[in-house]
Nucleic acid binder design. Structure first.
Length: 897
DNA sequence: ACACTGCATGTAATG
DNA sequence: ATTACATGCAGTGTC
């Protein structure tokens, strides 16, 4: 090791004697501390050599908190401390300059354990000091505290782009005591992550302006510069919580295609960047960005575009943590213009701003539409932000989502791909995949591992796609790989969903054609087979017999089912599958469960087609028809499986109107069941709530003569409601007449006890109280309107509200509704209406007539009158607060209309 | 009528 | 429970 002086010019200590402490950062990187001056150097920035037998953490002397040493020694040492939130002895002594050195949360980064921090064995890195990229050599990481660990070799030679820019070479340690077979997957993740650390590191020590792209730098104060500068190339990362590795598919490429979720450089934001936003850029892509220049590309973050992001509004919502970490600080909502270069070299100016939101901020890039369009991006695609050092220029890349969708939703058998079975389909994909040399060794070793986890990892590494298209204008060579479809089964669920934006369910494909690609849970269940060659142990639990397997189930071969009909005649189901050997389609009994591998040889049900030499049973036309039939079959099945839900959710009126509104759509439950309306995400086609049955806002209302399903349903409902009200009113009159008999007083008291709401009917009420109550009743109009609905609910949603009221009465009788309450409720709207319209005389007349056993309201009252009443009721509907006394089984429900 | 802007809200993720 | 964020939507401006 060549001697090197401490970069603290005041100190100038020679490395050979004074440098000894290596501090492990959470990322697995190391910093060294000059024993003489206490200055710490972060390896990725300035330190060239580390040699330490210690690792872990130190306490900040002033505050006593455990901190990693992230101090970066340079001429601007002190300022840099500001950003890192780290401190060391000497830095702390200078803390008059910046107390932030100890501002880090206690143990905020204290997640690194000695065992994975490892010991730094040897390093030799010529680096960026002075701003020029020279030669950076490997570092060996490993856990040597117990003599067992993983050492990977990283080579990073930026001066030889053809060879190894960002070349990541993972090698098995030369130490004989380290065996890959003994490595857990976790070790590999860590080692890969650690190895990855050094790829993107490298920053100019001279560029103090990290935001040259900021057009208006008024807000770009010095501290922010310092902060950014100090944090530019530091990778403080948690362990990747999930496997975030993937391989590229580039053949004949001498650089790494490993798509690793690169824990990004730490920004000034303290909050950790969610792995979701970790940039997953292959080294090749990095190289493409940097081009021939000596610039170092530091991936910052990436984001999957939401519909809003990719929409015409032109606003790209930025993850808060990312915005605060990597973009210039803004204090005003207006923000500032930001220059961002795309991978073609074109420069865009976006407005980087924020909206106050819930005591927080929501950061957006405005004006991205032209850029998004030029990249031909859409929801689900990914944009990636990087920084080009030493210029500090922000670079925006992108990755199309074609693979992601496929990865999530591919259902091989549903893809008419010319007769490939799922297996052959995938193998076809794999044929197109190649593993780059530097990585294949690892894969190979993983494949060869006896550890099933490693094999799984190996599979995963093989399967995960890598199709980032950092389309430097002339570099479209990856285009073809974009269309590769990869087996969804081998991709971690979390990762897959993230690929198209798990945050937004709306991004998930719901269109019918997309549904075809989905492997539903039920279908997946159908494909499960007991593990081969394993006999289950039979156990009985509570009279249920279970087969207990040691091994997890395996997925059987996929087949397709169709239902043949002859006109309206059901002819039966068929099962078809493809031979894994010859890809010919064979018809099978419907009850057959296929093993994962199936060939014509296994076709014991059709001796004439138990050989691959036997002709295909299907012509291309028939196959097409088969697939179409299968599609129909799936639709029906989906409808069947979802019908119970549809029936159980809404009850009574809602269910009724659902049926009415669905109308023709019932024939296509697949779409009806999944798509939400635009009015409210919770509402779905068929929802009959007041919101959903209205026409789209601003587009005009339905005409009175409209006979659409919605309008007809509403009319039916209203008619039924009013008829019922009339009926009940007449019953109420009869009841009141009975109460006017000699037993009047005691009965009334009894009622008052039972039903406080009925007080209003009492002639004893104080007028003022009555008035107040009337106001209350006005508000409780919803009670009356609720009647049909709740009655329906009481009937468990089985009441046909469109049936004749007479029939309903029989049902209502079984609903144990208080007759008085019904009467009261039925009366309310009319009273309210009369009162509201100043027709108190009529109201008095009505009351009089009620108490004097006058005939009830004419049953033949015109529809217009009824509608008038109803509309008056509706108009007052807003703000109705239901009287709690009406709750419970007897609660009077609310008609949505 | 349409586009734009800024805020509010609901939902999902996270702590 | 809190936070982040996707998106709806009302208010405003512009054609």
């Amino acid at each position: 090791m060549e001697a090197k002086s401490c970069m603290n010019e005041v100190c100038g200590a020679a490395k050979s004697t004074e440098w000894r402490k290596g501090w492990a950062l959470r990322s697995g990187e190391f910093a060294v501390l000059c024993d003489k001056c206490g200055s710490a150097f972060e390896q990725s920035m300035f330190c060239d050599v580390f040699h330490s037998k210690e690792s872990g953490w130190r306490e900040c002397t002033p505050c006593g908190k455990r901190l990693h040493c992230g101090c970066i020694a340079s001429k601007s040492l002190i300022e840099l401390l500001d950003s890192g939130g780290v401190s060391c002895l000497n830095c702390a002594k200078k803390s008059g300059l910046d107390s932030l050195a100890c501002d880090e949360k206690p143990n905020g980064f204290g997640t690194l354990k000695a065992d994975n921090a490892g010991d730094l064995q040897s390093m030799s890195v010529d680096n960026h000091v002075g701003g020029s990229v020279e030669k950076m050599k490997l570092m060996q990481l490993g856990s040597t505290s117990n003599g067992v660990g993983l050492r990977h070799l990283l080579q990073f030679q930026s001066d030889d782009p053809d060879e190894s820019f960002g070349k990541m070479k993972l090698e098995e340690s030369a130490k004989p005591d380290i065996s890959k077979a003994n490595m857990g997957a976790k070790d590999i993740y860590e080692s890969l992550a650690q190895t990855n650390l050094s790829i993107t590191l490298g920053s100019s020590g001279g560029n103090l302006n990290p935001f040259p792209g900021v057009v208006d730098e008024k807000e770009h104060n010095k501290s922010s510069s310092v902060i950014q500068q100090g944090t530019r190339a530091r990778h403080l990362l948690p362990k990747p919580p999930k496997l975030a590795l993937s391989t590229g598919s580039e053949a004949n490429v001498g650089i790494s295609q490993i798509r690793v979720a690169r824990p990004p450089a730490e920004g000034r934001g303290r909050s950790q960047l969610l792995p979701r936003y970790w940039p997953r850029i292959t080294d090749q892509e990095l190289q493409q960005i940097s081009g021939d220049s000596n610039s170092t590309i530091v991936p910052l973050f990436e984001k999957v575009l939401s519909a809003s992001d990719a929409g015409r509004i032109g606003r790209l919502v930025l993850p808060k943590a990312c915005a605060e970490a990597y973009f210039p600080p803004i204090s005003q909502p207006e923000g500032l213009p930001l220059r961002i270069q795309d991978v073609k070299g074109k420069e865009w100016v976006f407005q980087f701003r924020f909206w106050p939101n819930n005591n927080s901020r929501m950061y957006v890039l405005e004006g991205v539409t032209p850029c998004i369009q030029s990249m031909q991006l859409q929801a689900g695609d990914t944009v990636t932000f990087s920084r080009m050092d030493p210029e500090g220029k922000l670079v925006m890349g992108f990755r199309k989502a074609s693979n992601s969708v496929a990865m999530q939703d591919t259902q091989p058998s549903a893809i008419p791909n010319g007769g490939h079975s799922s297996e052959s389909f995938f193998s076809g994909v794999f044929e197109n995949l190649s593993i780059i040399s530097g990585y294949s060794g690892v894969l190979q070793s993983l494949k060869g591992s006896a550890d099933p986890h490693l094999n799984a990892l190996s599979k995963h590494l093989n399967s995960t796609s890598g199709d980032i298209n950092w389309l430097k204008s002339e570099k479209y060579e990856d285009k073809t790989r974009e269309s590769l479809l990869l087996p969804s089964m081998l991709v971690p669920e979390r990762k897959r969903s993230r690929n198209i934006g798990s945050k937004s369910k709306r991004l998930l494909m719901d269109r019918q054609d997309a549904l075809e690609l989905k492997l539903t849970w039920e279908e997946a269940q159908d494909m499960l087979r007991s593990p081969p060659s394993v006999m289950p142990s039979i156990i009985t639990i509570e009279d249920h017999v279970f087969e207990e397997y040691e091994d997890p189930p395996v997925f059987g071969k996929r087949s397709i089912f169709v239902v043949r009909t002859n006109g309206l005649m059901f002819r039966g189901q068929e099962q078809w599958t493809q031979c894994d050997g010859c890809s010919k389609w064979r018809r099978l009994p419907v009850d057959v469960l296929l093993p994962p591998k199936w060939t014509c040889m296994d076709n014991k049900w059709d001796p004439t087609r138990c050989s691959c030499s036997a002709p295909d049973e299907l012509t291309p036309g028939e196959l097409e028809n088969l697939l179409r039939l299968n599609k129909d079959f799936k639709k029906r099945r989906l409808a069947t499986s979802q019908r119970p839900n549809q029936e159980s959710e809404p009850s009574g009126m809602d269910a009724l109107s659902n049926v009415a509104i669905l109308g023709d759509n019932m024939g296509d439950p697949g779409t009806a069941s999944v798509a939400t309306t635009t009015k409210h995400p919770r509402h779905r086609p068929g929802c009959s709530c007041i919101v959903c049955i209205q026409p789209p806002s601003g587009k005009g209302k339905h005409k009175p003569t409209c006979t659409c399903n919605v309008c007809m349903t509403v009319k039916r409902r209203f008619k039924t409601l009013m008829m019922r009200k009339k009926k009940r009113q007449s019953e109420r009159e009869a009841e009141v007449a009975q109460r006017n008999q000699p037993t009047w007083a005691p009965k009334e008291e009894a009622e008052a006890e039972v039903d406080s709401n009925s007080k209003h009917a009492s002639p004893h009420l104080d007028p003022s109280e009555n008035e107040a109550r009337s106001a209350n009743e006005l508000e409780s109009k919803s009670q009356s309107n609720n009647l049909p609905n709740k009655a329906a609910e009481a009937g468990k949603g089985q009441i046909d509200l469109n049936c004749h009221p007479d029939r309903e009465d029989a049902q209502a009788g079984s609903n144990r509704l208080s007759m008085m309450k019904l009467l009261q409720v039925a009366t309310l709207p009319l009273e309210n209406y009369l009162k509201q319209n100043g027709l108190t005389s009529l109201m008095a007349e009505q009351q009089t007539s009620s108490t004097s056993q006058a005939p009830p309201q004419a049953a033949g009252e015109s529809e217009g009158r009824v509608n008038e009443l109803a509309s008056a009721t509706q108009e007052r509907e807003s703000g109705g607060e239901e009287d709690n006394s009406g709750s419970g089984p007897d609660q009077i429900p609310n008609d949505p209309q």
